[in-house]
Design a binder for these strands. Structure first.
Length: 120
RNA sequence: UGACCGAGUCGGACGGUUGCGCAGUGACGCCGAAAGGCUAUCUGUGAGGAAAGUCCGGGCUCCGUAUGGCAAGGAUAGCAGAUAACGUCUGCCGAAGGCGACUUCAGGGACAGUGCAACAGAAAUAAACCGCCGACCUUUGUCGGUAAGGAUGGAAAGGCGAGGUAAGAGCUCACCGGCGUGACGGAGACGCCACGGCCAUGUAAACCCUAUCCGGAGCAACACCGCAAGAGGCGGAGCGAAAGCUCCAUAUCCGCCUGAUAAGACCUCGAAGGUGGCAUGAAGCGUCGGGCGAUCGGCGCUCAAGAUAGAUAAUCGUACAAAGGGUUCGCCCUUGGACAAAACCCGGCUUAUAGAUUCGGUCAUAAC
RNA sequence: GGAGACAUACCCAAGUUGGCCGAAGGGGCUCCCCUGCUAAGGGAGUAGAUCGGGAGUAACCGGUGCGAGAGUUCAAAUCUCUCUGUCUCCG
C-alpha cells in the first residue's frame, strides 16, 4: 500500500487557500504544484463551526477513504508533485452522506482542475 | 393491577471482505564493504459514562530553599467522621415540602462597627397625618398624653386574649414565639425542663467580623539533543600598596522584606525540527474481615489506547431496538441506531443522554 | 490542549456602591427645507422587541423581555450559580 503524506505546516494551508480551487457539493478541492515533491501531499479541513469532534472525525475519515479509493484505482495521483487540500462543506456533515458521494465530487473536481484526464 | 420513591448495571450485538494507529516479530525482499537499517508478512491491542464543560481538589514539573515573614487577594461556613485533598462523600442535627417511601437547603455572626432600604407613607430605626383622651379657649384652634384603630409599604416597634386606664401602652397576667441564665440527656450540632426580664426591622450571594484553608504558573509545564554560530551582560561608589572586602544598582526574579547566585577558555537568553515527559496507578477485578455508612485493612489475580494536521473507517450479511406508512392483525415496506470521541494522569462536581435491565421500598385498589 | 474577555432596540453603544429603567446618546427610519433631480447640508418627529386583548389599520391597555435558565433580595441589566454563543492570547 502506498503511503499517504499529509501537510503539516499551517503556512502551507494558508497559501493553499489562495490557490486554484474547484468547489463541489460536499468538498472544495485546492491544488498547487510543487516540483520538489516526490509524492502528493494532502490536507483535510473540517471546520469546528460545522460540528463536534465526532462529526469532524467522521468527515475526515470519509474524505481520506475517498482519496485512498482514487489511488487504488491506479490513477497515479499519489505520485504527482502536488499539494491537495480538501475542505469539507456543510453538506458533508449531514448524517446520510456516503463515501461514494465524496468520491464522485472529488473526482469531478480533479478533472475540472486538469489533474486527471477525463477517462470516462 | 395502577401510581410513585430510592440505589445500581448496560448503553448497540454477532460474523465476512478491504484498510488505519501503536507494540512485538522480521525475512529467502531492498539499502549497505561491514556493523546494521528499512519493509513485506504474521501476532497482539486500540475511546467514554460522561472522554465534554474546565467548576473545584491532588499528583507531577519549573519558578528561589516551596510549611521563611508581612501585606494584599481569594475560598469555605450546622456537628461528627471519611479522604492524599476538596467547595466532594457518609451519618446525624435543624428548617422546608410530601398521606408515605423519601426529597430539598451557600444552614456562622445583624446587642463590633459602617452603609443601603427607591416610590408610597406623618414617620424606615426614627415617629403624632388622621383618629382617641385631657387641659386651655369665644370659633377656626393651641398645648400635652397616647402606638388600640385608619392609611402607605416587602417591612410600622413581638402575636392573641383578659385585666387595667381619662384614652392607651408588656403597664400587669395566661398561652404562643424570640432572647438570656441554669439543671438534665448527648461526643457534638442540638433536644428538653425551669426561671428571668419584656427586647434590639430587613439586607452580610453590601462592606465587614469570627474560625479554618490557600505561594505562583502550567505538559504549548519542563529536561535533553539541535548547539555551533548569534544576541545581551560583565556597572557605580568607598576602603586598601595589592589580593580582596563593604555598600548601591542590574539580572536570575514573581507585590514587598529577608535570603541565595552571578562574570573569562565566564554568565544569561536562545528558532524550525526531534527525543523524553507518556502509561504500574491514592489502578482494576474477585474474595474475606472491621464499620450503620462514606470507606479502611488482609489475601489472590490482571496489565488494559498512547496519537501529534492527530489512529476505529468503508462495505456486505444476520437477527434486535426506535420512528413513519400499510395491514387480511399473521405480518409487510421504508428510514435508520441516544448523548457524544482520549491528548500528562488521578479524585469529585456540573451539564447532555434514545432505550434496555436488576434489586429494595411506599401509597391506593381488588382478591385471598 | 491550556489561559482569559465579552453579550443591552435593526447597527454602534451609555448605564453595574441593586431602586423614579425598558433603556441616555448617535447612526438608521419618516416628514419638511434646500436642488431642475439626487448626494451632501439644515430643521422637526416617531416607534422602538415579543405575546395577549382591542381591532379595517393604528392609537390604546396588560404581561414578558438587557444571550438563556435558576437562586439571594421587598426589589436584579447590576450580586451568585449553571448553560449558550462570539472573540482574543499561549507553541
Amino acid at each position: 500500500m502506498e503511503k499517504i503524506f499529509t501537510i503539516k505546516s499551517n503556512s502551507t494551508f494558508t497559501r493553499m487557500y489562495r490557490s486554484k480551487s474547484s468547489p463541489q457539493g460536499t468538498v472544495v478541492v485546492y491544488v498547487r504544484r510543487n516540483p520538489n515533491l516526490k509524492k502528493a501531499h494532502i490536507g483535510i479541513t473540517a471546520s469546528k463551526k460545522q460540528g463536534g469532534a465526532v462529526e469532524r472525525n467522521r468527515v475526515r475519515r470519509i474524505i481520506r477513504e475517498a482519496y485512498r479509493t482514487l489511488v487504488l484505482e491506479g490513477t497515479g495521483i499519489n505520485d504527482m508533485p502536488y499539494y491537495f487540500v480538501f475542505v469539507a462543506r456543510t453538506k458533508c456533515f449531514s448524517k446520510n452522506i456516503r463515501m461514494q458521494n465524496v468520491y464522485n465530487d472529488m473526482k469531478r473536481a480533479l478533472v475540472e482542475l486538469g489533474i486527471l484526464g477525463n477517462t470516462k
